[in-house]
Simulated assay, not measured.
Amino acid sequence: MTGTLARDAVDAVDAVDVVLAELFEDRVRRAARHGEQYALLWRRLARSVEGGKRLRPRLLLDTHRAFGDPHPQDAAVAGAAFELLHTALLLHDDVLDQDRSRRGRLNLTGEFTQDAQADLPPRTADAWGEASGILGGDLLLSAAHALLARVRPAAYEALSALVDECLFRAAAGEHADVAFALGTVPATPEGLVRMMEDKTGGYSFAAPLRAGAALADAGEQADAELERVGTALGVLYQLRDDLLGVFGDARRTGKSTTGDLREGKRTLLVAFAEGHPAWTAVRHRWGAPDLDADDADALRAALVASGARDATERLVESRRREVVDLIGGTALPTALRHHLTDLADRIVDRDS
């Protein structure tokens, strides 16, 4: 980050955290009247929001400041709402992927599963954990809408429509991702890119950028430019994420590097490997529920030998250049253009 955006970032994110802390304090207190397990669910939801990078609130806040920061309290509330949306979708995603950890620790589903394992059969314990994850995600989606209702009326309609649109797109992307993983729909390169645009580009980048501009009444041109830039940044982010999901350092990413291979996740990395003899020889282990470390190493070696890793890394660099050119061609404020260009570079260089 550069200039004023960098100097104000910490205070602005602190304001988002204050909004989140107040919301969870209220919800935990109210939940206690409905039983200890429900209060525990809300306490664990509060923990699920902790420790993230606050990427989406930062995008919203930085954009809002770049257009003059006319409504800082509304921006803090909206930033908190986007963090809740993000956590809600992660909770649902973990259930769909049958993941039990997140950020290097048990996720909410894993915690409730672990609680039940001492007294219940494994399938029943899993069902309890997954039900808790689904309901927790639903509750955070509702809480996000409750927060958005607190912004000034003149901005609420635009923000509400924006969130409705980004969730609509995110569900489309998630549905396609599951379809690709199960093999119910062919995972073409074009389909994979569209999935990334919907699942990551929409709600993680384009929507918070557009929300920050909408709160500042930045106008239709800024909205259209931020939609294009945000979607492109989201695809770049997902491409890098797919590489880290297989070749990253789990101590840095907080996620297992065997999960995507065990799940049989369809990515461009895998699409590039298809048909190569090295990949064909081990492909039967890809997506195996009992995938072990040796099998995962064999799959990684095949992704390297097939040239898939190099091809994906070249695509990441090519996409980075395209995003930087796209940003440079906008009429966005200079400080915001510099910040978004820096963000594209950091997305490519990140190891977590």
Results as ranks from 00 to 15, higher is better:
residue 3 G to I: 02
residue 6 A to S: 07
residue 8 D to K: 06
residue 11 D to V: 01
residue 11 D to M: 00
residue 15 A to M: 01
residue 19 V to Y: 05
residue 19 V to M: 10
residue 28 V to M: 11
residue 32 A to K: 12
residue 36 E to C: 07
residue 42 W to V: 12
residue 42 W to D: 12
residue 42 W to R: 10
residue 47 R to M: 02
residue 49 V to S: 10
residue 53 K to W: 11
residue 57 P to F: 15
residue 59 L to R: 13
residue 60 L to S: 06
residue 64 H to N: 03
residue 73 Q to P: 00
residue 73 Q to F: 05
residue 80 A to M: 10
residue 80 A to I: 13
residue 82 F to Y: 15
residue 82 F to S: 10
residue 83 E to C: 04
residue 86 H to G: 02
residue 87 T to P: 09
residue 89 L to S: 08
residue 95 V to N: 03
residue 98 Q to H: 14
residue 98 Q to D: 14
residue 99 D to S: 14
residue 99 D to C: 11
residue 106 L to C: 06
residue 111 E to N: 01
residue 113 T to L: 02
residue 114 Q to T: 02
residue 127 A to N: 01
residue 127 A to R: 10
residue 128 W to K: 11
residue 131 A to C: 02
residue 140 L to H: 06
residue 140 L to K: 07
residue 144 A to T: 03
residue 147 L to V: 03
residue 150 R to A: 00
residue 166 C to F: 14
residue 167 L to R: 11
residue 169 R to N: 06
residue 171 A to T: 00
residue 172 A to T: 03
residue 172 A to K: 12
residue 173 G to H: 07
residue 179 A to V: 12
residue 181 A to Y: 14
residue 183 G to I: 10
residue 186 P to Q: 15
residue 186 P to C: 05
residue 191 G to A: 14
residue 193 V to H: 15
residue 195 M to V: 14
residue 201 G to I: 09
residue 202 G to Q: 14
residue 206 A to D: 15
residue 213 A to H: 02
residue 218 A to W: 09
residue 220 E to S: 05
residue 221 Q to Y: 04
residue 222 A to G: 00
residue 223 D to A: 00
residue 225 E to N: 00
residue 233 L to E: 01
residue 233 L to G: 06
residue 234 G to S: 00
residue 235 V to A: 09
residue 237 Y to A: 04
residue 239 L to M: 02
residue 240 R to G: 05
residue 240 R to A: 04
residue 244 L to W: 15
residue 245 G to S: 04
residue 247 F to S: 07
residue 249 D to E: 04
residue 252 R to C: 01
residue 254 G to N: 07
residue 254 G to W: 04
residue 258 T to A: 12
residue 261 L to P: 09
residue 263 E to R: 12
residue 268 L to N: 05
residue 268 L to G: 06
residue 270 V to I: 14
residue 270 V to G: 08
residue 274 E to D: 13
residue 275 G to I: 05
residue 275 G to M: 00
residue 284 H to L: 07
residue 284 H to K: 08
residue 285 R to Y: 07
residue 286 W to F: 15
residue 287 G to D: 14
residue 290 D to A: 04
residue 290 D to K: 08
residue 291 L to H: 01
residue 297 D to A: 08
residue 298 A to H: 04
residue 304 V to Q: 13
residue 305 A to D: 13
residue 306 S to G: 13
residue 306 S to D: 07
residue 306 S to E: 07
residue 308 A to R: 12
residue 313 E to V: 09
residue 313 E to K: 13
residue 315 L to C: 10
residue 316 V to S: 08
residue 316 V to R: 12
residue 318 S to Y: 13
residue 321 R to A: 04
residue 322 E to L: 02
residue 327 I to S: 09
residue 329 G to R: 12
residue 329 G to H: 09
residue 329 G to T: 08
residue 330 T to V: 06
residue 330 T to C: 01
residue 331 A to S: 14
residue 334 T to I: 06
residue 339 H to I: 02
residue 340 L to Y: 05
residue 343 L to Y: 11
residue 344 A to E: 09
residue 345 D to F: 04
residue 352 S to G: 14
residue 352 S to W: 14
